[in-house]
Simulated scan of single mutants.
Amino acid sequence: MSQPGERIETTHDAEKELLTLRADCQQCFALCCVVPAFAASADFAINKRAGHACPHLQSDFRCGIHTTLRQRGFRGCTVYDCFGAGQKVSRLTFEGHDWRASPQTAQQMFAVFPVMRDLHELLWYVTTALILPAAEPLYADLRHAQSEIKHLTRHSPEELLALDMTAYRQTINTLLVRASELVRAGVRGKKKDHRGADLIGARLKGSDLRGANLRGALLIGADLRNANLKLADLTGADLRDADLRGADLSESIFLIQSQLEAAKGDSKTKLPSSLRYPWHWSNETQ
């Protein structure tokens, strides 16, 4: 068992680490505008093939319609989060050689980016777990995992492409599930288990979902107004168009910014201090 001072230091270090896991588009070669494919839908106005630049990408690697993405039908772009993988690949892995100036490295860079993003996402979850007091019994294992992932992100392109990310993700996920169980055990009584459940359009207004397992749940368009989601595990939950107005997510665990960007909410929605209110919430019709 760690001492109080050690817990405070662990939390402080974790909070600083999370700040490094944010996208810095000015340090990236717009990899998210090139690498992924997308199809014309409610999230994207056009079709785009993987590895091909979006037509709105400018020569300086900036988006030509960044301030009007939602209005122009590119909502999907506004909810994407690379967790800082873009600048890592651009500035560290490929040492600042961009894919336009060095076309011979383009395909390798495009292949490395999804691997790095997966590693950075895992690093975000592991680091977040180190801020959860109830997960203290796992702090040593979490710190080891954190160090290991950070080491992997410094690998060469060839080494990164050789990683078995499916197996590695499962290993880290097992640790994160244990952390989730420790945290959610703080809620008394039987907790709802909706892991991977199809809750599309579900009427959950005012529901008591404290300590619920909502990992991977499909909550697209669900009515979660005024729901209590304290200590609920929202890892990978699909919150597209979910109505979170007045909901209490102040202590929800493993909730990420992109999930909020995809949802609907208002000033009465309670969020963890590490996350921000999406700007479009104040502009949506209530």
Rank of each mutant, 00 (worst) to 15 (best):
P278N: 02
L92N: 08
T78D: 13
D81S: 15
C82K: 04
T10L: 04
T166P: 08
K88Y: 07
A263R: 10
S274K: 15
H151W: 09
N47S: 11
A37M: 06
L224F: 09
F113W: 12
K190G: 04
T171N: 10
R62Q: 07
I253R: 04
G201N: 03
G221K: 14
I256T: 15
F74C: 05
R70E: 12
K205R: 10
E121R: 07
F38Y: 14
I8T: 10
H12S: 14
H194C: 13
L260N: 03
C28Q: 05
I8G: 05
L255G: 05
D43K: 15
L260V: 00
N228H: 05
D81A: 06
R75I: 11
L218R: 15
H52L: 14
T67L: 10
A222H: 04
K230R: 15
H52I: 10
L275E: 08
D243M: 09
D43L: 15
R100S: 00
T235V: 04
N213I: 05
L119E: 07
G246P: 02
S2M: 12
P137Q: 05
L182V: 11
K270V: 03
L219E: 03
G5C: 01
D233P: 10
R91M: 10
L119C: 08
G76P: 00
L132G: 07
I149H: 07
M109R: 13
R72W: 08
A39V: 09
W99F: 02
D13C: 11
L260P: 09
T20Y: 12
L244R: 06
R62N: 12
A263D: 05
Q108H: 09
C25R: 09
Q108W: 07
R240P: 07
D223P: 11
R178C: 04
T128G: 09
L214F: 14
S156A: 13
E9A: 15
R91V: 01
Y139E: 09
R91N: 01
N173Q: 09
I46P: 02
G246C: 07
C28K: 06
R75S: 10
I253C: 01
A262V: 01
T127D: 08
P157M: 02
T68G: 01
R49E: 14
R7A: 11
E284L: 13
L271C: 01
R240A: 12
L122E: 05
P133K: 11
A263T: 05
Q170L: 10
A42L: 13
P55L: 02
M1D: 07
V79T: 15
A202E: 05
N228A: 12
H151S: 11
P157Q: 07
R245A: 10
E159G: 03
L224N: 05
G196P: 13
Q259H: 03
T68Y: 07
L204T: 00
